[in-house]
Amino acid sequence: MADKKHKLLEVKGLTMDFGGLRAVDSVSLEVHEGEIAALIGPNGAGKTTFFNCVTGIYNPTKGDILLHPKGLETRRLNGLKPNKVTEMGLARTFQNIRLFQDMTVLENVMIGRHCRTKSGIFRSIIRDKGVREEEQQIVETCYQLLEKVGLGDSANEFAKNLPYGAQRRLEIARAMATDPFLLLLDEPAAGMNPQETADLDHLICRISEEEKIAILLIEHDMKLVMNISNPIYVMEYGKKIAEGSPQEIKDNPKVIEAYLGEETED
């Protein structure tokens, strides 16, 4: 099924140790073009650690993280700094919202454009025509992104004054501003009410279809995961225990055990 599509991200045997604790144990995973893949698992399974390894916040102990951008040569992401990873086209959001609180909504998104623009210190001081045009370009791109996630009206508000659901969407917009071809979303629906979750559902599908951005998401909201994502990867205690389509995952006894506990005979 997915084999014919172009492989974007390939993680092979990723292992991450913190001292004696093995948080992620040889997990392999692939994300193909046009996919919305999901990574699920109980709390503490190592999903966020996995994300942090892929995005360069941690340097993995073992394993390979390979990025295959379309039309470009394959790049190994191990040991690269987060900003380099982002430059290569892999953006992320955070589980506990990490917005720039004291900046306006628009400025938050503008930060995302930083790695795609290049006016330096001296040109910023002189503020020549090129810089002014670039700035204008940034503002316009970011404004359009905000409209897409439905935040166009609050562009000049402080990020900290936004309601919770909007802050989540702003994080997505900010990540999208870096021009990624693969977006990693860490629990985008955490703390949202059903209505907001449904909106997010649409938003993620739209990003995937309209922007042609592949998505890998960590999520606890099973309804959201089963609705939109395929394939699904399941982790428990740092190990990958299952992978497959939503239906396969639902019927997998290992997954049921991980979530609901072992069946006992009485």
């Binding site: 987060p82 982002t86 790695c115 795609r116």
Partner: peptide, 13 residues
Amino acid sequence: EDEIACVAMGIDM
């Protein structure tokens, strides 16, 4: 505002 988010958004710290 946030160092980790800042680098994750592609800024060279």
